[in-house]
C-alpha cells in the first residue's frame, strides 16, 4: 500500500509553488513507482502559511511548500527582506549554487526542526498601481501602496516617497478597485490570481524583493522513510531545482502575456531605486553579519 504524502501550500495552484510540488511528486513517482501517493492541497485548503509551518514542525503534516513564513523562524533569514538584493533570476541561481542555498538549508533545519527538501522560487515582488508607470523612485511619490510585512518594508517604501498602507490581502482587490489604495506590491502570480490586473493600470517590474520558496518535510515523516526513500527525496529535491526555476520563468511569462491586455507593463531604473534605499542594509549587517551578503555580491557578475 502506497504511503500517503500530503503537500500543502498556502498559495493557489497558479503559483510556482504548486508547479514545484507537482514536479517533485512526479519525479519521485518515476523513481519509486507505487511507493507513495502524493496529495496536493494548494490554496490554503489545509491552512494559512503560519498554520502549515506549525503543522509541519509538529509532524501533523508530511510536507508543505511555503515562502516568506519560513523567514520568520530566524532573523538571519531576514536577508531576503533587503531590497534589490538580486538583479534577476540568473543572479539568484548563481548565488544559490555558490553556497547560499546550503547555508540557509542548514540554518532552517537548525532553528525550525524541519527537513528542507528543496529551495526554489516564490518570485520577485513588483508594484502594481492605478495611477502611473513607476520608472524611478520619484514616480512613487505620494502613492498609497498596500504592502505586506513589517516596519522594515514600510521604511523602504517610505524612503522612496510612497505612503505605505496596511490592508488585509483579501480586501486588497476591493481596496484597489474603490481607490482606498492606489497600488500594491506582490509577486506576479499574486496579482494574477487575485485579478488585480483588472482594476490596476500599470505593472512596474520593480523586483524590489526576491522571495524563495521552501519545500519542507516534517522530521517525523522524513525519519519514517527507508534509507533508499530518504536518498531519493533528497536527490529529487535538489535535482528539480533547475526545472523549478524554468517553470517559474514560464509561468511568469504566461501571466505577463495574459495581463498585458489589461494593463501596461514597464521596466524600471534599478540603480536609482538601489541608491534610494542603500541605507536599509546597515541594520541587517550590523546585527546579522554579512556572510550571506558576500555570497550574493560575489555572484552578481
Amino acid at each position: 500500500k502506497p504511503i500517503e504524502v500530503r503537500i500543502a501550500s498556502h498559495v493557489s495552484s497558479f503559483s510556482p509553488l504548486h508547479a514545484q510540488s507537482e514536479l517533485f511528486a512526479a519525479e519521485v513517482e518515476k523513481r519509486l513507482p507505487g511507493q507513495f501517493e502524493f496529495k496536493l492541497f494548494p490554496g490554503g485548503q489545509l491552512g494559512k502559511e503560519k498554520d502549515l509551518m506549525t503543522n509541519v514542525q509538529a509532524g501533523s503534516l508530511e510536507m508543505i511548500n511555503v515562502a516568506s513564513g519560513v523567514m520568520k523562524l530566524d532573523k538571519k533569514l531576514g536577508v531576503f527582506d533587503l531590497p534589490w538584493l538580486f538583479s534577476d533570476r540568473d543572479h539568484v541561481k548563481r548565488a544559490m549554487k555558490a553556497g547560499l542555498e546550503d547555508a540557509i538549508r542548514t540554518r532552517i533545519e537548525e532553528v525550525g526542526s524541519v527537513k528542507v527538501i528543496g529551495v526554489y522560487e516564490n518570485g520577485f515582488r513588483h508594484v502594481i498601481n492605478t495611477e502611473r508607470a513607476i520608472g524611478e523612485p520619484f514616480d512613487l511619490e505620494g502613492l498609497k501602496i498596500r504592502i505586506s510585512g513589517g516596519k522594515f518594508r514600510q521604511g523602504v517604501f517610505q524612503q522612496m516617497g510612497a505612503t505605505p498602507q496596511k490592508v488585509s490581502w483579501g480586501e486588497t482587490f476591493t481596496a484597489l478597485q474603490a481607490g482606498v489604495v492606489d497600488g500594491a506590491e506582490a509577486a506576479t502570480y499574486g496579482f494574477y490570481e487575485q485579478k488585480h490586473f483588472e482594476v490596476a493600470k500599470h505593472l512596474s517590474l520593480t523586483g524590489h524583493v526576491y522571495t524563495p520558496s521552501f519545500l519542507l518535510a516534517s522530521t517525523d515523516f522524513f525519519d519514517s522513510l527507508t534509507d533508499e526513500q530518504k536518498k531519493v527525496f533528497t536527490e529529487v529535491g535538489k535535482e528539480i531545482t533547475d526545472a523549478a526555476y524554468d517553470a517559474s520563468a514560464s509561468l511568469e511569462a504566461k501571466y505577463f502575456e495574459e495581463m498585458k491586455g489589461k494593463l501596461k507593463i514597464n521596466d524600471v531604473d534599478l540603480d536609482a531605486f538601489k541608491k534610494a534605499t542603500a541605507k536599509s542594509y546597515d541594520t541587517y549587517v550590523k546585527s546579522q553579519g554579512d556572510d550571506y551578503l558576500t555570497i550574493i555580491r560575489n555572484a552578481a557578475k
Binding site: M53, T54, Q57, A58, S68, K72, L73, S148, G150, K151
Partner: peptide, 15 residues
C-alpha cells in the same frame, strides 16, 4: 503543544 512547537516564531508585522 502548539505553543511549544511554534510559539517562538514572530508574527509577520512586528517583533
Amino acid at each position: 503543544r502548539m505553543i511549544r512547537v511554534a510559539g517562538a516564531t514572530e508574527i509577520e508585522t512586528a517583533e
